[in-house]
């Protein structure tokens, strides 16, 4: 069974925005879309490690702030002609709180 960690209130992340969560193995970017869905991804673009949390969120994708690669928040896959994938982690909302899967911490350590 997976344990969920309460990281913040949904309102702590702006609509169409992101914030980072610090973990021992680097930062995870937590995104909130216009439809109030939340997604968690490694905060590093497959291109040159651009900080994805600083990108523009549109639909369910984010555009990397450094060179405009577009990354799907659901799969982590790079869209369009470019190639690559960012690791994604389970995230959900319950009673207005954002929860991350605790197992991801362990997995990140191994990785």
């Amino acid at each position: 069974m997976s344990a969920w960690i309460d990281i913040a209130a949904l309102e702590d992340i702006p609509l169409r925005g992101a914030r980072v969560v610090k973990t021992r193995a680097g930062c995870v970017a937590v995104f909130r879309t216009a439809a109030d869905d939340v997604f968690a991804l490694d905060n590093a673009c497959p291109h040159k490690q651009g900080p994805l949390a600083e990108g523009i969120v549109h639909g369910s994708a984010v555009t990397c702030p450094l060179h405009n690669w577009v990354i799907s928040l659901e799969t982590g896959l790079v869209q369009g002609a470019d190639e690559g994938q960012v690791t994604t982690y389970p995230a959900r909302i319950e009673d207005g709180r954002i929860l991350l899967d605790a197992a991801f911490l362990a997995a990140r350590k191994v990785a």
């Binding site: 960690i5 913040a8 980072v20 969560v21 610090k22 021992r24």
Partner: peptide, 15 residues
């Protein structure tokens, strides 16, 4: 505060 990480899990026990 919006410039800080929204959470810090570096101290969270990771097994």
């Amino acid at each position: 505060d919006t410039y800080q990480p929204v959470a810090n899990l570096t101290l969270e026990a990771a097994e």
